[in-house]
């Protein structure tokens, strides 16, 4: 069984937010719900000030704090390395959101569409069936696409080819080689969560 992971090359990321939109389009997340985000950080002072972009989504940790605090077992770590939420089991206590060091979980409020004066569009009606109000949701590495042999939507959409997806367990895979060759690191490594998303230094 593959152990899925992602590598994000910060040297290539241009901060275009395509991955954010691709995720929204693919997963049809309601307003206010962002499974994939791009964080912009300012560094330095004028005239040598810079903005750095860091895309973040669920890190699919190997020791996920969210799984440990979930009282119902709705959040679970699959054998493929993907941390998923069983929406039918989620009671919406939000303990997982409080406990996530990366703040990448969203809570589905009562769902309102993007175009409130017109009601839900046919696309929204279809997409929101997946998003149960009162539950927590997050990135699942586009499991439905993986089943069809496709890569996650954000990986395919990235125009700068900054995202790579593959099997971390296989040392010959592209992701494993990138991590080894370009000293890939993980966010908040010291938290001991063992994320499956690696970053290549910018």
């Amino acid at each position: 069984m593959a152990k899925y992971g992602m590598v994000i090359d910060l040297k290539r990321c241009v901060g275009c937010y395509s991955c954010v939109l691709a995720c929204k389009a693919e997963n049809g997340t309601p307003p206010g719900v962002f499974w994939n985000k791009v964080l912009a950080t300012e560094k330095g002072r004028y005239p040598s000030a810079h903005i750095y972009y860091t895309p973040v989504a669920c890190m699919h940790c190997d020791s996920p704090p969210c799984e440990g605090v979930c009282p119902t077992g709705a959040t679970y770590k699959g054998r493929d390395g993907i941390v998923s939420i069983e929406q039918e089991k989620c009671i919406g206590c939000r303990y997982c959101q409080v406990s996530c060091p990366y703040d990448v979980r969203s809570f589905n409020e009562r769902i309102k569409g993007y175009f409130q004066e017109f009601g839900l569009t046919p696309y929204e009606k279809a997409a929101y069936a997946r998003h149960k109000p009162g539950t927590v949701s997050k990135c699942d590495f586009c499991s439905h696409r993986l089943e069809q042999g496709k890569e996650p939507a954000c990986v395919v959409a990235c125009p700068a080819r900054a995202r790579h997806f593959g099997d971390l367990g296989d040392p010959t895979s592209e992701v494993a080689r990138l991590i080894a060759g370009r000293s890939g690191y993980r966010l908040r490594e010291e938290a001991g969560t063992q994320p499956s998303v690696y970053y290549l230094p910018g």
Binding site: P71, T72, K89, C90
Partner: peptide, 25 residues
């Protein structure tokens, strides 16, 4: 009332010692 799905609150004791919320319940 703070739960997103109050009607499912009994699920919280289905896995008794999994979470501090289960222990607390």
């Amino acid at each position: 009332l703070d739960l997103g799905r109050p009607e499912r609150f009994l699920y919280a004791v289905l896995r008794p010692f999994s979470s501090m919320i289960s222990v607390g319940t």
